[in-house]
Design a protein around this nucleic acid. Structure first.
Length: 279
RNA sequence: UCGUGAACUACACUGA
Protein backbone atom coordinates (compact mmCIF):
# COMPACT_ATOMS: atom_id res chain seq x y z
CA UNK A 1 0.00 0.00 0.00
CA UNK A 2 2.79 2.36 0.91
CA UNK A 3 4.65 1.64 -2.31
CA UNK A 4 1.54 2.20 -4.41
CA UNK A 5 0.84 5.45 -2.63
CA UNK A 6 4.41 6.63 -3.09
CA UNK A 7 4.08 6.09 -6.82
CA UNK A 8 0.78 7.91 -6.74
CA UNK A 9 2.45 10.84 -5.00
CA UNK A 10 5.20 10.87 -7.60
CA UNK A 11 2.62 11.08 -10.39
CA UNK A 12 0.84 13.84 -8.53
CA UNK A 13 4.01 15.88 -8.20
CA UNK A 14 4.90 15.47 -11.86
CA UNK A 15 1.49 16.47 -13.06
CA UNK A 16 0.61 13.04 -14.41
CA UNK A 17 -3.01 13.18 -13.44
CA UNK A 18 -4.17 10.49 -15.83
CA UNK A 19 -1.59 7.99 -14.63
CA UNK A 20 -2.42 8.77 -11.04
CA UNK A 21 -6.06 8.14 -11.73
CA UNK A 22 -5.31 4.81 -13.39
CA UNK A 23 -2.98 3.73 -10.65
CA UNK A 24 -5.50 4.58 -7.99
CA UNK A 25 -8.15 2.64 -9.87
CA UNK A 26 -5.87 -0.39 -9.99
CA UNK A 27 -4.94 -0.35 -6.33
CA UNK A 28 -6.17 -3.43 -4.48
CA UNK A 29 -6.49 -1.57 -1.21
CA UNK A 30 -6.80 2.10 -0.35
CA UNK A 31 -6.59 4.09 2.79
CA UNK A 32 -6.99 7.70 3.75
CA UNK A 33 -3.48 8.57 2.68
CA UNK A 34 -3.96 7.19 -0.83
CA UNK A 35 -7.27 9.02 -1.15
CA UNK A 36 -5.55 12.20 -0.05
CA UNK A 37 -2.81 11.68 -2.58
CA UNK A 38 -5.30 11.30 -5.41
CA UNK A 39 -7.03 14.44 -4.22
CA UNK A 40 -3.67 16.18 -4.35
CA UNK A 41 -2.98 14.89 -7.86
CA UNK A 42 -6.04 16.75 -9.06
CA UNK A 43 -5.68 19.70 -6.77
CA UNK A 44 -2.16 20.65 -7.72
CA UNK A 45 -2.84 20.19 -11.41
CA UNK A 46 -5.69 22.61 -11.88
CA UNK A 47 -8.48 20.07 -11.72
CA UNK A 48 -10.45 21.59 -8.89
CA UNK A 49 -13.70 20.07 -10.06
CA UNK A 50 -12.21 16.57 -9.96
CA UNK A 51 -10.57 17.29 -6.63
CA UNK A 52 -13.93 18.21 -5.22
CA UNK A 53 -15.43 14.99 -6.58
CA UNK A 54 -12.71 12.92 -4.97
CA UNK A 55 -13.25 14.74 -1.71
CA UNK A 56 -16.96 14.00 -1.84
CA UNK A 57 -16.33 10.33 -2.60
CA UNK A 58 -13.82 9.77 0.18
CA UNK A 59 -14.98 7.52 2.99
CA UNK A 60 -13.54 9.83 5.64
CA UNK A 61 -11.64 13.05 5.97
CA UNK A 62 -8.75 14.21 8.06
CA UNK A 63 -7.00 17.56 8.36
CA UNK A 64 -4.83 16.75 5.36
CA UNK A 65 -7.86 16.08 3.15
CA UNK A 66 -9.49 19.34 4.18
CA UNK A 67 -6.28 21.26 3.61
CA UNK A 68 -5.78 19.73 0.20
CA UNK A 69 -9.21 20.85 -0.87
CA UNK A 70 -8.65 24.31 0.56
CA UNK A 71 -5.34 24.65 -1.28
CA UNK A 72 -6.84 23.32 -4.51
CA UNK A 73 -9.37 26.14 -4.47
CA UNK A 74 -6.86 28.74 -3.34
CA UNK A 75 -4.37 27.88 -6.06
CA UNK A 76 -7.01 28.47 -8.70
CA UNK A 77 -7.90 31.78 -7.15
CA UNK A 78 -11.25 30.58 -5.83
CA UNK A 79 -10.74 32.25 -2.49
CA UNK A 80 -14.41 32.29 -1.63
CA UNK A 81 -14.52 28.52 -1.96
CA UNK A 82 -11.29 28.18 -0.06
CA UNK A 83 -12.70 30.28 2.73
CA UNK A 84 -15.85 28.18 2.76
CA UNK A 85 -13.76 25.05 3.15
CA UNK A 86 -11.80 26.73 5.90
CA UNK A 87 -15.00 27.60 7.71
CA UNK A 88 -16.43 24.12 7.28
CA UNK A 89 -13.42 22.27 8.63
CA UNK A 90 -14.05 20.56 11.92
CA UNK A 91 -10.51 21.41 13.01
CA UNK A 92 -7.90 23.84 11.79
CA UNK A 93 -4.17 23.67 12.18
CA UNK A 94 -1.21 25.83 11.17
CA UNK A 95 -1.35 24.44 7.66
CA UNK A 96 -4.97 25.44 7.10
CA UNK A 97 -4.38 28.95 8.43
CA UNK A 98 -1.22 29.45 6.41
CA UNK A 99 -2.81 28.08 3.25
CA UNK A 100 -5.58 30.63 3.48
CA UNK A 101 -3.08 33.39 4.23
CA UNK A 102 -1.06 32.50 1.14
CA UNK A 103 -4.20 32.23 -0.94
CA UNK A 104 -5.22 35.77 -0.07
CA UNK A 105 -1.70 37.03 -0.59
CA UNK A 106 -1.41 35.54 -4.07
CA UNK A 107 -4.80 36.91 -4.93
CA UNK A 108 -3.44 40.35 -4.06
CA UNK A 109 -5.39 40.85 -0.88
CA UNK A 110 -2.69 41.88 1.53
CA UNK A 111 -5.32 43.16 3.92
CA UNK A 112 -6.97 39.79 4.29
CA UNK A 113 -3.65 37.99 4.45
CA UNK A 114 -2.58 40.22 7.31
CA UNK A 115 -5.91 39.70 9.00
CA UNK A 116 -5.50 35.93 8.85
CA UNK A 117 -2.03 36.25 10.29
CA UNK A 118 -3.35 38.29 13.18
CA UNK A 119 -6.18 35.86 13.80
CA UNK A 120 -4.07 32.72 13.77
CA UNK A 121 -3.99 31.08 17.17
CA UNK A 122 -0.33 30.20 16.68
CA UNK A 123 2.39 30.96 14.16
CA UNK A 124 5.53 29.28 12.96
CA UNK A 125 8.33 30.21 10.59
CA UNK A 126 6.21 29.18 7.60
CA UNK A 127 3.47 31.65 8.51
CA UNK A 128 5.98 34.41 9.10
CA UNK A 129 7.60 33.74 5.75
CA UNK A 130 4.23 33.75 4.03
CA UNK A 131 3.53 37.17 5.53
CA UNK A 132 6.91 38.53 4.48
CA UNK A 133 6.25 37.38 0.93
CA UNK A 134 2.81 38.94 1.04
CA UNK A 135 4.29 42.33 1.90
CA UNK A 136 7.01 41.92 -0.71
CA UNK A 137 4.45 41.05 -3.35
CA UNK A 138 2.61 44.20 -2.42
CA UNK A 139 5.78 46.27 -2.68
CA UNK A 140 5.67 47.16 0.99
CA UNK A 141 9.32 46.76 1.83
CA UNK A 142 9.11 48.83 4.97
CA UNK A 143 7.00 46.14 6.54
CA UNK A 144 9.27 43.44 5.19
CA UNK A 145 12.15 45.06 7.01
CA UNK A 146 10.12 45.42 10.14
CA UNK A 147 9.16 41.75 10.10
CA UNK A 148 12.72 40.54 9.72
CA UNK A 149 13.50 41.72 13.22
CA UNK A 150 10.53 39.83 14.61
CA UNK A 151 11.35 36.45 13.12
CA UNK A 152 11.69 33.70 15.70
CA UNK A 153 14.37 31.99 13.62
CA UNK A 154 15.65 31.75 10.06
CA UNK A 155 15.91 28.98 7.57
CA UNK A 156 16.85 28.86 3.92
CA UNK A 157 13.33 29.41 2.59
CA UNK A 158 12.84 32.46 4.78
CA UNK A 159 16.21 33.84 3.73
CA UNK A 160 15.26 33.27 0.11
CA UNK A 161 12.01 35.16 0.62
CA UNK A 162 13.89 38.11 2.11
CA UNK A 163 16.47 37.88 -0.64
CA UNK A 164 13.69 38.02 -3.22
CA UNK A 165 12.22 41.06 -1.50
CA UNK A 166 15.56 42.87 -1.71
CA UNK A 167 15.85 41.99 -5.37
CA UNK A 168 12.31 43.12 -6.03
CA UNK A 169 13.08 46.36 -4.24
CA UNK A 170 16.23 46.68 -6.32
CA UNK A 171 18.53 46.89 -3.35
CA UNK A 172 21.03 44.51 -4.86
CA UNK A 173 23.77 45.32 -2.41
CA UNK A 174 21.60 44.18 0.48
CA UNK A 175 20.74 41.07 -1.46
CA UNK A 176 24.42 40.38 -2.00
CA UNK A 177 25.17 40.85 1.68
CA UNK A 178 22.45 38.47 2.73
CA UNK A 179 23.39 35.96 0.05
CA UNK A 180 26.98 35.98 1.28
CA UNK A 181 25.95 35.72 4.91
CA UNK A 182 23.53 32.83 4.47
CA UNK A 183 24.78 29.62 6.06
CA UNK A 184 23.42 27.59 3.15
CA UNK A 185 22.21 28.39 -0.33
CA UNK A 186 20.19 26.31 -2.71
CA UNK A 187 19.20 26.61 -6.34
CA UNK A 188 16.36 29.00 -5.47
CA UNK A 189 18.72 31.34 -3.60
CA UNK A 190 20.98 31.43 -6.62
CA UNK A 191 18.08 31.92 -9.01
CA UNK A 192 16.91 34.90 -7.00
CA UNK A 193 20.34 36.47 -7.33
CA UNK A 194 20.42 35.67 -11.03
CA UNK A 195 17.09 37.45 -11.40
CA UNK A 196 18.62 40.42 -9.63
CA UNK A 197 21.53 40.51 -12.03
CA UNK A 198 19.12 40.16 -14.92
CA UNK A 199 17.22 43.15 -13.58
CA UNK A 200 20.33 45.30 -13.47
CA UNK A 201 21.72 43.89 -16.70
CA UNK A 202 24.83 42.67 -14.97
CA UNK A 203 25.95 40.06 -17.48
CA UNK A 204 29.29 39.35 -15.89
CA UNK A 205 27.95 38.74 -12.41
CA UNK A 206 25.22 36.52 -13.80
CA UNK A 207 27.74 34.49 -15.78
CA UNK A 208 30.00 34.19 -12.79
CA UNK A 209 27.26 33.03 -10.46
CA UNK A 210 25.84 30.62 -13.02
CA UNK A 211 29.22 29.01 -13.54
CA UNK A 212 29.67 28.58 -9.79
CA UNK A 213 26.28 27.02 -9.14
CA UNK A 214 26.53 23.38 -8.07
CA UNK A 215 23.12 22.70 -9.52
CA UNK A 216 21.06 24.57 -12.07
CA UNK A 217 17.50 24.15 -13.24
CA UNK A 218 15.34 25.51 -16.03
CA UNK A 219 14.81 28.74 -14.10
CA UNK A 220 18.56 29.32 -13.84
CA UNK A 221 19.08 28.67 -17.53
CA UNK A 222 16.21 30.95 -18.45
CA UNK A 223 17.52 33.76 -16.26
CA UNK A 224 20.91 33.54 -17.91
CA UNK A 225 19.22 33.65 -21.30
CA UNK A 226 17.21 36.66 -20.14
CA UNK A 227 20.34 38.52 -19.07
CA UNK A 228 21.81 38.11 -22.53
CA UNK A 229 18.60 39.11 -24.19
CA UNK A 230 18.28 42.24 -22.08
CA UNK A 231 21.78 43.29 -23.04
CA UNK A 232 21.13 42.69 -26.74
CA UNK A 233 23.50 39.73 -26.95
CA UNK A 234 21.18 37.73 -29.13
CA UNK A 235 23.95 35.40 -30.20
CA UNK A 236 24.76 34.47 -26.62
CA UNK A 237 21.09 34.18 -25.81
CA UNK A 238 20.58 31.74 -28.66
CA UNK A 239 23.65 29.80 -27.67
CA UNK A 240 22.32 29.48 -24.16
CA UNK A 241 18.91 28.52 -25.46
CA UNK A 242 20.43 25.67 -27.44
CA UNK A 243 22.47 24.48 -24.51
CA UNK A 244 19.53 24.26 -22.15
CA UNK A 245 18.66 20.69 -21.28
CA UNK A 246 14.99 21.60 -21.10
CA UNK A 247 12.91 24.59 -22.11
CA UNK A 248 9.51 25.78 -21.12
CA UNK A 249 7.22 28.47 -22.48
CA UNK A 250 8.98 31.09 -20.40
CA UNK A 251 12.34 30.28 -21.95
CA UNK A 252 10.77 30.52 -25.39
CA UNK A 253 9.22 33.83 -24.45
CA UNK A 254 12.56 35.31 -23.44
CA UNK A 255 14.15 34.10 -26.63
CA UNK A 256 11.34 35.68 -28.63
CA UNK A 257 11.81 38.89 -26.67
CA UNK A 258 15.54 38.84 -27.38
CA UNK A 259 14.92 38.72 -31.11
CA UNK A 260 12.05 41.15 -31.05
CA UNK A 261 13.99 43.69 -29.03
CA UNK A 262 16.69 43.72 -31.64
CA UNK A 263 14.14 44.23 -34.37
CA UNK A 264 14.85 40.85 -35.92
CA UNK A 265 11.30 40.31 -37.05
CA UNK A 266 11.93 37.44 -39.38
CA UNK A 267 13.71 35.43 -36.70
CA UNK A 268 11.04 36.32 -34.19
CA UNK A 269 8.29 34.91 -36.37
CA UNK A 270 10.30 31.84 -37.21
CA UNK A 271 10.91 31.20 -33.56
CA UNK A 272 7.27 31.76 -32.75
CA UNK A 273 6.27 29.15 -35.29
CA UNK A 274 8.65 26.59 -33.85
CA UNK A 275 7.37 26.84 -30.29
CA UNK A 276 6.14 23.33 -29.56
CA UNK A 277 3.23 24.45 -27.47
CA UNK A 278 1.86 27.97 -27.43
CA UNK A 279 -0.37 29.72 -25.01
C1' U B 1 11.67 2.31 10.81
C1' C B 2 7.52 3.85 6.26
C1' G B 3 3.61 6.79 1.86
C1' U B 4 -0.35 12.39 1.54
C1' G B 5 -1.18 18.88 2.97
C1' A B 6 0.95 25.14 4.01
C1' A B 7 5.97 29.49 3.22
C1' C B 8 10.85 31.22 -1.10
C1' U B 9 12.88 32.09 -7.44
C1' A B 10 12.24 33.67 -13.92
C1' C B 11 8.17 35.87 -18.92
C1' A B 12 3.98 37.52 -21.32
C1' C B 13 -1.30 37.80 -21.67
C1' U B 14 -6.31 38.09 -19.70
C1' G B 15 -9.86 38.95 -16.06
C1' A B 16 -11.87 41.25 -11.20
Amino acid sequence: LILWTSMLAAYARQGHTKEAEQLFGAMPVRDLVSWNTLLDAYGRNQCVRKARQVFDLMPEWDLVAWSLLLVAYARQGYLDNAKQVFDSMPLRDLVSWTSLLTGYSHQGSLRRAKMIFDLMPERNLVSWTALISAYALHGDFQHVRGLIGLLPELNIVTCNAILAAYVEENTISEARNLFAAMPHRNVVSCNVMLAGFAQTGDVQEAERLFSLMPEVDVVSWTSLLAVYGASFRVDKAMQTFELMPERNLISWNFMLAAYAQKGLLEETFQMFDSIPERN
